[in-house]
Computed example of a mutant assay.
Amino acid sequence: MHRELYTMHATNFFVPSFLMAIKDNTEESFRNMMSEPSPGVFTFEMLQPRFCELLLSEVENFEKWVRETKFRIMRPNTMNKYGAVLDDFGMETMLEKLMEDFIRPISRVFFSEVGGSTLDSHHGFIVEYGMDRDVDLGFHVDDSEVTLNVCLGKQFSGGELFFRGVRCDKHVNTETQPEEILDYSHVPGNAILHRGRHRHGARATTSGHRINLLLWCRSSVFRELKKYQKDFSSWCGECQREKKERQQQSVAAIKLELLKWEGEAAS
């Protein structure tokens, strides 16, 4: 219905501050248009209201067609019962360009240790929340290296995201440290960008209808290398704590040995 959605029209899609930052393509330009409310979680204005309206309208038309034809479609993931995979109705090329030209430059700067500079595939989808839709979303990690989550609208209350620290497979169920706690309230047109391994969930949408665009960005290079790694302290919060603890114990043991040696030498 809205053909302009299927190819990348950057000036029609994005707000000027986002386009300017991408054009300059420096850490400074990215930081100027972003907030970082918690380490590794970035929020910024991204989509123009008109683009959000067109995409919502396109999704509604697609869902209407699905209902009328009783066509079976794949839902976004194992957790969301409502929504649609955008790649399945022709948006794959546009989303690929979104990842390559707009998300990968940012990820190269802020998420290099999880394959941010080698993102090479994506899974793009819409999720829907409301009283007659999915209400909330449990605590989980994404099947991505980097996740882009943009609120499209509509009118709603509740639905806050809660973040609880980045974890590798081994530590995914470990407890959260106080400094890792972040709650984020969605604003239509605004994006949140984070590592896929950043544990998070969504609180109940208490009224209205909330619809979000998600882009899971993946790196085949990072996934291959990860198979042979044992130390993830460059990005896993718990691995970092364990490493720090080992270093402190090692320093303490050396100090003890020195004191012992000095004592023996004195006697």
Rank of each mutant, 00 (worst) to 15 (best):
M1Y: 14
M1N: 13
E4F: 04
L5G: 13
Y6G: 02
A10V: 09
A10I: 06
T11G: 07
S17P: 07
L19H: 08
K23R: 13
D24Q: 15
E28H: 11
E28D: 13
S29P: 12
S29M: 08
S35A: 13
P39L: 07
G40P: 08
R50A: 14
L54N: 09
N61W: 11
F62C: 11
E63R: 02
W65H: 10
K70W: 04
F71W: 07
F71G: 11
I73T: 10
M74T: 12
T78D: 06
N80I: 03
V85P: 01
D87Y: 12
G90N: 08
E92H: 09
T93F: 05
E100T: 14
I103F: 06
I106C: 07
I106A: 05
F110A: 10
F111A: 10
F111Y: 12
V114P: 02
T118I: 14
D120C: 10
S121V: 01
G124D: 03
E128S: 04
D136T: 09
D136M: 09
H140R: 07
H140W: 01
E145G: 00
V146S: 10
L152F: 04
Q155N: 13
G158H: 01
D169F: 09
K170V: 10
N173I: 14
E180G: 11
E180L: 05
I181D: 07
I181L: 04
H186T: 11
G189P: 02
A191F: 09
I192V: 14
G196Q: 07
R197V: 13
R199F: 04
T206I: 15
G208F: 05
I211G: 00
I211N: 01
I211E: 00
L214F: 02
L214S: 07
R218E: 02
F222N: 03
E224K: 10
E224R: 04
E224C: 06
E224H: 05
D231S: 01
D231P: 00
C239K: 02
Q240Y: 06
E242S: 03
K244D: 08
V251Q: 14
I254E: 15
K260I: 07
A266T: 15
